[in-house]
């Protein structure tokens, strides 16, 4: 994590111009994309939004509460709930056994079995407690860099998508290509050498 322990994750470059006074503009944007829990009555399985990583239940996302010098530290809360396939199978077997006891010898058509399974899944999903994960996003505004405490491709995609929807700014991962591209631009060279670069054959013959 960023705020404690060790950091494992990916760095990104922020593309686009950050407003001179981001606090005024971005605080409202943050509130629009703040975390909203899954409605227990819905069949939604995933919810994702911004929180204050230092007080994740605090709904106050004012900029000055998130700022640390030139940085802003955000929390990305991800709630997921799912139904255990094993338990769903067990419940389905139980219901089907009850049906067979009620009407011995009667065949339960496949469509009916699927309908029962779907109804059970919805029932179990509504009763399921979501699991919560918090990832940290640390944005250095003057340096236009973002550190994200996950290397998961899915989470990085979700975070960059939410970041863009919230702030109107794109994130580009700082990986081999983007660092090389920035290097050639900084050196005033064209991108020809980078475009031509092919894997090096280091085999010893």
């Amino acid at each position: 994590m960023i705020l404690s322990g060790s950091f494992s994750g990916r760095r990104h470059r922020v593309e686009g111009k950050t407003p001179a006074k981001p606090g005024e503009q971005f605080a409202k944007a943050l509130m629009r994309h703040a975390f909203v829990p899954i409605d227990p009555a819905s069949d939604k399985t995933r919810a994702l939004g911004w929180v204050n990583p230092r007080a994740i239940l605090d709904e106050d996302l004012r900029w000055d509460r998130l700022a640390l010098g030139p940085h802003v530290v955000l929390g990305l809360r991800i709630d997921t709930r799912k139904v255990s396939r094993t338990m769903l199978r067990a419940r389905l077997d139980q219901v089907l056994a009850e049906r067979r006891r009620e009407k011995p010898g009667a065949r339960i058509p496949r469509e009916e079995r699927l309908r029962i399974a779907k109804a059970l899944e919805t029932e179990m999903l509504v009763a399921a407690t979501p699991s919560t994960a918090i990832q940290e996003v640390w944005w250095n505004l003057p340096a236009s860099t973002v550190w994200f405490s996950s290397s998961s491709a899915k989470l990085n995609d979700e975070m960059t998508d939410l970041f863009e929807r919230t702030f109107g700014l794109k994130l580009v991962p700082l990986g081999p290509f983007t660092l090389a591209e920035a290097h050639t631009e900084a050196a005033g060279k064209g991108g020809g050498a980078l475009e031509r670069a092919k894997p090096t054959d280091l085999r010893v013959r």
Binding site: G5, S6, F7, S8, G9, S151, P173, G175, P176
Partner: peptide, 9 residues
């Protein structure tokens, strides 16, 4: 592949 850091303390 990504130049991601791991366990940087």
């Amino acid at each position: 592949e990504t130049l991601d850091f791991g366990g940087l303390k």
